[in-house]
Design a protein around this nucleic acid. Sequence first.
DNA 1: TTCCTGACTCCAG
DNA 2: CCTGGAGCCAGGA
Length: 123
Amino acid sequence: MKKRTISTDRKQTPDKSNFFEDVFDVVRQIPKGRVTNYGSIAKYLGSGLSSRMVGWAMNASHMMKPKVPAHRVVNRNGMLTGKHHFPTPTTMETLLEKEGVKVISDKVVEFKERYWDPAVGLL
DNA sequence: TTCCTGACTCCAG
DNA sequence: CCTGGAGCCAGGA
Protein backbone atom coordinates (compact mmCIF):
# COMPACT_ATOMS: atom_id res chain seq x y z
CA MET A 1 0.00 0.00 0.00
CA LYS A 2 1.82 3.03 -1.22
CA LYS A 3 -0.89 5.45 -0.32
CA ARG A 4 -0.50 5.91 3.38
CA THR A 5 -3.45 7.79 4.74
CA ILE A 6 -3.45 9.56 8.06
CA SER A 7 -6.22 7.52 9.57
CA THR A 8 -4.83 4.22 8.51
CA ASP A 9 -1.35 5.19 9.49
CA ARG A 10 -2.47 6.67 12.76
CA LYS A 11 -5.17 4.21 13.56
CA GLN A 12 -4.11 4.42 17.14
CA THR A 13 -5.64 7.86 17.36
CA PRO A 14 -8.73 7.89 19.58
CA ASP A 15 -10.80 9.80 17.06
CA LYS A 16 -11.01 9.36 13.34
CA SER A 17 -7.90 11.41 12.89
CA ASN A 18 -6.16 14.51 14.03
CA PHE A 19 -7.41 16.17 10.90
CA PHE A 20 -11.06 16.16 11.96
CA GLU A 21 -10.14 17.36 15.39
CA ASP A 22 -8.23 20.31 14.02
CA VAL A 23 -10.99 21.34 11.67
CA PHE A 24 -13.68 21.08 14.32
CA ASP A 25 -11.58 22.98 16.81
CA VAL A 26 -11.24 25.90 14.44
CA VAL A 27 -14.91 25.90 13.45
CA ARG A 28 -16.02 25.83 17.04
CA GLN A 29 -14.07 29.00 17.69
CA ILE A 30 -15.95 30.96 15.09
CA PRO A 31 -17.64 33.81 16.99
CA LYS A 32 -21.41 33.91 16.97
CA GLY A 33 -22.76 35.96 14.14
CA ARG A 34 -19.64 35.43 12.09
CA VAL A 35 -18.88 33.17 9.18
CA THR A 36 -15.83 31.85 7.43
CA ASN A 37 -15.02 29.85 4.36
CA TYR A 38 -13.50 26.46 3.74
CA GLY A 39 -10.38 27.75 2.07
CA SER A 40 -9.32 29.85 5.04
CA ILE A 41 -9.73 26.99 7.45
CA ALA A 42 -7.76 24.71 5.19
CA LYS A 43 -5.11 27.32 4.82
CA TYR A 44 -5.00 27.99 8.53
CA LEU A 45 -4.46 24.31 9.20
CA GLY A 46 -2.25 24.93 6.42
CA SER A 47 -0.34 22.51 5.41
CA GLY A 48 -1.58 21.09 2.36
CA LEU A 49 -5.09 20.50 3.25
CA SER A 50 -7.60 21.22 0.58
CA SER A 51 -10.82 23.09 0.98
CA ARG A 52 -12.72 19.97 0.08
CA MET A 53 -11.31 18.19 3.08
CA VAL A 54 -12.78 20.84 5.35
CA GLY A 55 -16.23 20.43 3.87
CA TRP A 56 -15.82 16.73 3.95
CA ALA A 57 -14.95 16.92 7.64
CA MET A 58 -18.07 18.99 8.19
CA ASN A 59 -20.08 16.09 6.93
CA ALA A 60 -18.95 14.16 9.98
CA SER A 61 -19.39 17.17 12.26
CA HIS A 62 -23.02 16.33 12.91
CA MET A 63 -22.13 13.26 14.87
CA MET A 64 -19.40 15.05 16.74
CA LYS A 65 -19.85 16.25 20.28
CA PRO A 66 -20.02 18.95 21.06
CA LYS A 67 -21.76 19.72 17.87
CA VAL A 68 -19.82 21.84 15.44
CA PRO A 69 -21.41 25.06 14.13
CA ALA A 70 -21.02 23.99 10.56
CA HIS A 71 -23.63 26.53 9.54
CA ARG A 72 -21.03 29.23 10.08
CA VAL A 73 -18.88 27.77 7.38
CA VAL A 74 -19.70 28.75 3.82
CA ASN A 75 -17.87 28.83 0.55
CA ARG A 76 -15.77 31.72 -0.71
CA ASN A 77 -18.81 33.47 -2.17
CA GLY A 78 -20.66 33.36 1.13
CA MET A 79 -23.12 30.94 -0.41
CA LEU A 80 -24.63 28.23 1.76
CA THR A 81 -23.40 25.36 -0.33
CA GLY A 82 -23.79 22.89 2.51
CA LYS A 83 -27.39 23.67 3.41
CA HIS A 84 -28.56 20.49 1.73
CA HIS A 85 -26.53 18.41 4.15
CA PHE A 86 -28.34 19.67 7.21
CA PRO A 87 -31.38 17.90 8.66
CA THR A 88 -33.48 20.27 6.58
CA PRO A 89 -32.48 22.63 3.76
CA THR A 90 -33.59 25.57 5.86
CA THR A 91 -31.68 24.66 9.01
CA MET A 92 -28.51 26.42 8.00
CA GLU A 93 -30.01 29.77 7.09
CA THR A 94 -32.34 29.61 10.08
CA LEU A 95 -29.46 29.14 12.48
CA LEU A 96 -27.50 31.92 10.84
CA GLU A 97 -30.35 34.40 10.95
CA LYS A 98 -30.95 33.48 14.54
CA GLU A 99 -27.41 34.59 15.22
CA GLY A 100 -27.96 37.83 13.39
CA VAL A 101 -26.62 36.83 10.01
CA LYS A 102 -28.98 37.65 7.17
CA VAL A 103 -29.25 35.17 4.37
CA ILE A 104 -30.75 35.96 1.00
CA SER A 105 -30.88 33.58 -1.92
CA ASP A 106 -28.68 31.11 -0.06
CA LYS A 107 -26.03 33.77 0.34
CA VAL A 108 -24.75 35.58 3.41
CA VAL A 109 -25.51 39.30 3.31
CA GLU A 110 -22.46 41.50 3.82
CA PHE A 111 -20.35 38.40 3.80
CA LYS A 112 -17.20 40.45 3.66
CA GLU A 113 -18.07 42.14 6.94
CA ARG A 114 -19.31 38.97 8.54
CA TYR A 115 -16.25 37.11 7.46
CA TRP A 116 -14.04 35.83 10.22
CA ASP A 117 -10.51 34.73 9.49
CA PRO A 118 -9.19 32.02 11.85
CA ALA A 119 -5.68 33.37 11.50
CA VAL A 120 -6.93 36.74 12.75
CA GLY A 121 -9.47 35.57 15.30
CA LEU A 122 -7.07 33.17 16.94
CA LEU A 123 -4.30 35.69 16.85
C1' DT B 1 -4.58 -1.75 -5.83
C1' DT B 2 -7.24 1.39 -9.00
C1' DC B 3 -11.24 4.39 -9.97
C1' DC B 4 -14.81 7.60 -8.56
C1' DT B 5 -16.80 11.13 -5.77
C1' DG B 6 -17.00 15.21 -2.81
C1' DA B 7 -20.31 20.93 2.08
C1' DC B 8 -14.01 23.88 -2.55
C1' DT B 9 -11.11 27.19 -5.12
C1' DC B 10 -8.58 29.14 -8.96
C1' DC B 11 -7.85 30.22 -13.81
C1' DA B 12 -9.44 30.68 -18.67
C1' DG B 13 -12.63 31.46 -22.21
C1' DC C 1 -21.53 37.31 -15.82
C1' DC C 2 -21.55 32.33 -16.31
C1' DT C 3 -19.53 27.76 -17.44
C1' DG C 4 -15.97 24.37 -17.62
C1' DG C 5 -11.69 22.11 -16.47
C1' DA C 6 -7.76 21.20 -13.33
C1' DG C 7 -5.81 20.72 -8.64
C1' DC C 8 -6.48 19.26 -4.27
C1' DC C 9 -6.66 15.05 -0.11
C1' DA C 10 -9.13 11.28 1.92
C1' DG C 11 -12.38 7.43 1.95
C1' DG C 12 -15.41 3.87 0.02
C1' DA C 13 -16.35 0.10 -3.53
